[in-house]
């Protein structure tokens, strides 16, 4: 019996070591750094003080960027849900023999670098980009529309990055629904819409919430779409961390902002897990 007790741990050791060395210890470093001070030369001074956290909340500037990040993340979640549920439902209902190809198409964007996908929007939305070019040639507009370097462009970049995550989560949840339940509802006299509203939609909510959580967390931590597609005033919290760590070598303050973001996202994930269970997300990737 004793001989068997260590076996699971031995099998888990490589994974646990990876988590320990690549996640837990670096996060601990960041937490420790957040209490340190920065010397004028850029060197770090070991200390234990809360000045970096006080600085974050000292005026509304930094919290306002955090609020903007949460707002953009919520907008992204809402748009991804709206745009993602319909294709997921289509994949669930279709009996096409090409269904597997449709699913591969959802994964297709992941085969191309995220940076290149984001940069490609410049050629589509720019003043001399495809969209403005077509509209101008058709005579619909007389001068280019300002489609790039604003929050709309940032949202577009975020959606193209995160939509597959939403579709897959919802699709997995829909696939788990017993189709006979829908047939039963229909045989009892409900319309197609009623069957969807009363049966399919409630049963797909775990997948919807898992997709929402994933999209929200990934949006809150991203910095490339705002940097490439955003204009003045579109920075999100990850851009701020980047500037503090890279731009001013202020690692202690950058670490403090990271810890605050980590705390907020951790609270959201904890709350989600407590009421809905985080297992749904893992099902998507099984």
């Amino acid at each position: 019996m004793e001989q068997k007790a260590w076996k699971p741990w031995a099998l888990l050791a490589p994974s646990l070591s990876a988590v320990l060395f690549l996640l837990v210890i670096p996060v601990c470093f960041i937490i420790v750094y957040s209490f340190w001070l920065r010397a004028p030369t850029g060197a770090d001074i070991p200390a234990f003080q809360f000045g970096n956290y006080q600085r974050f909340f000292a005026d509304f500037f930094y919290p306002s960027i955090l609020i903007r990040t949460i707002r953009v993340a919520l907008e992204t979640v809402a748009l991804c849900l709206l745009m993602g549920y319909i294709p997921a439902y289509f994949f669930y209902r279709t009996e096409s023999r090409h269904k597997s190809i449709f699913l591969i198409l959802i994964m297709l964007p992941f085969w191309i670098s995220f940076i290149i996908r984001t940069l490609s929007w410049i050629n589509i939305l720019g003043d001399t980009g495809l969209l403005n070019h077509v509209l101008l040639r058709m005579g619909i507009i007389s001068e280019p529309l300002g489609l790039l370097y604003n929050e709309g462009a940032v949202l577009m970049g975020l959606i193209q990055y995160l939509l597959p995550f939403m579709i897959l989560n919802v699709y997995v949840s829909l696939e788990g629904i017993d189709r006979s339940l829908v047939e039963a509802a229909r045989s009892l006299g409900s319309t197609e819409w009623q069957a969807f509203r009363e049966v399919v939609l409630p049963l797909s909510l775990p997948g919807v919430s898992a997709g929402c959580l994933l999209v929200f967390v990934l949006t809150a931590g991203t910095y490339l779409p705002p940097m490439i597609l955003g204009g003045p005033g579109n920075d999100m919290i990850a851009n701020l961390i980047f500037k503090r760590v890279i731009g001013t070598l202020d690692w202690p303050f950058g670490s403090a902002i990271s810890v605050i973001l980590l705390g907020i996202l951790g609270t959201i994930v904890y709350t989600y897990n407590r009421y809905l269970g985080i297992n749904q997300i893992f099902k998507t990737f099984q």
Binding site: P40, F61, G233, D235, D250
Partner: peptide, 19 residues
């Protein structure tokens, strides 16, 4: 310039962000 980096870089970030 190096003597003002911390203060000015942060102030500039604020202005750039809309403050």
């Amino acid at each position: 310039w190096n003597g003002h980096q911390m203060e000015w870089a942060e102030k500039w970030d604020r202005i750039k962000a809309g403050a």
